[in-house]
C-alpha cells in the first residue's frame, strides 16, 4: 500500500483578538485590543496510504478543520512537514489541488444561480478535463448518485440532501486521487446519510480513491472507516481501529459509541 499522505509534526497557531471587558470596554476596544495566541495544531503527525478511508473525530475546535485546511493547501502551517502525493500543498498549489477533491458540508462549491449541469461544465474547464473523460466520468457519477433529474435545477433550489449528492459529483469529476470530506453528513436526514455512505464506500472500492472525513456522527465512522484518528486540543490523541477506542474507554459491555467518545473527551479534559 503506497503512502499518499504524510504529516510530520504540524504546528499551527492563530491569533485571536479579545475585547477588553469591564468599564468603558467598548471605548477601550476602539484603541487597544488584546491579542491571544491559540495553538490550533500542536505537533500532529500521521500517515495515510492509498485507498484507505480514515475518519477524523474530535470535539468542536479541536483542530480537525485546520488539519483538513493544511492538507488541502488553504493554510500554511507554522512548522512541520506535509506531503500529499509527494507534494507540499502550499508550495505547489495548482499541481496539488488538481489531484484532490474537497467537500465541505457547510459550504457549496456549486455556483448558486446556475444549473448543476452548468456548474459541472464550468468545472470541466477549471480542471481542464478532456471531453471524452468528462463525458464518461460525469455519466458515471450522475448515474450512481442518481442526480440525472437535478441537472437543470439551480443549486439554490436543491434540498440539502440533493445538493450534497451534487457536491460529491462535483468534487469527483476530475477523478482526484484523494478526497477530503469536512463534515459531509451534517444536517442530512437518515435516508440521505445512508445514500451518501453507500456511495462513498462504493466509490472507494471501485476507483480506489483515498478518503479522509471529519465528522461528529459516529455512525459515519462505523459504516465507513476501519481506521479512526482522534484530534483534541491540537494533538493527535488516538490513531487506530475503532475497536481499540472501545477497549480503552467503554466502561461496560455494549456501550454506545457516542458514549465512548464522550468518555474519551472527558478524559482528555481531565488529563490537561
Amino acid at each position: 500500500m503506497a503512502e499518499q499522505i504524510r504529516l510530520t509534526d504540524i504546528q499551527k497557531h492563530f491569533t485571536v483578538y479579545e475585547r477588553p471587558d469591564g468599564k468603558w470596554a467598548l471605548l477601550r476596544a476602539a484603541f487597544s485590543r488584546k491579542a491571544r495566541r491559540v495553538q490550533a495544531l500542536d505537533g500532529v503527525s500521521f500517515r495515510i496510504g492509498e485507498g484507505e478511508i480514515v475518519g477524523c473525530i474530535g470535539p468542536n475546535g479541536a483542530g480537525k478543520s485546520t488539519t483538513v485546511k493544511v492538507m488541502s493547501g488553504i493554510l500554511t502551517p507554522d512548522a512541520g512537514e506535509c506531503l500529499i502525493l509527494g507534494r507540499t500543498p502550499w508550495k505547489e498549489r495548482i499541481a496539488h489541488v488538481s489531484q484532490i477533491g474537497v467537500v465541505f458540508g457547510q459550504r457549496s462549491q456549486l455556483w448558486w444561480d446556475v444549473s448543476v449541469a452548468d456548474s459541472f461544465a464550468l468545472l470541466k474547464d477549471v480542471y481542464a478535463i478532456p471531453d471524452g473523460q468528462f463525458a464518461r466520468r460525469s455519466a458515471e457519477l450522475i448515474e450512481t448518485l442518481d442526480i440525472g433529474g437535478l441537472l437543470k435545477t439551480p443549486a439554490r433550489q436543491l434540498s440539502l440532501g440533493q445538493r450534497m449528492r451534487c457536491e460529491l459529483a462535483a468534487a469527483l469529476l476530475h477523478s482526484p486521487k484523494i478526497l477530503f470530506l469536512d463534515e459531509p453528513t451534517i444536517g442530512l436526514d437518515a435516508v440521505a446519510k445512508l445514500t451518501l455512505r453507500a456511495f462513498l464506500k462504493e466509490e472507494n472500492r471501485r476507483s480506489g480513491v483515498t478518503m479522509l472525513l471529519t465528522t461528529h456522527d459516529m455512525d459515519d465512522i462505523e459504516a465507513l472507516c476501519r481506521r479512526v484518528i482522534v484530534i483534541g486540543r491540537g494533538r493527535l490523541l488516538y490513531d487506530g481501529a475503532i475497536a481499540g477506542l472501545r477497549g480503552k474507554y467503554a466502561a461496560r459491555e455494549g456501550q454506545d459509541i457516542d458514549e465512548i467518545i464522550a468518555a474519551m473527551y472527558r478524559d482528555m479534559a481531565l488529563e490537561s
Binding site: 488541502s72 493547501g73 498549489r93 499541481a95 489541488v97 488538481s98 459550504r107 477549471v126 480542471y127 481542464a128
Partner: peptide, 9 residues
C-alpha cells in the same frame, strides 16, 4: 475564497 484556493487556476 477558500474554495478558489482549491481550484487549479
Amino acid at each position: 475564497f477558500d474554495r478558489l484556493l482549491l481550484r487549479p487556476r
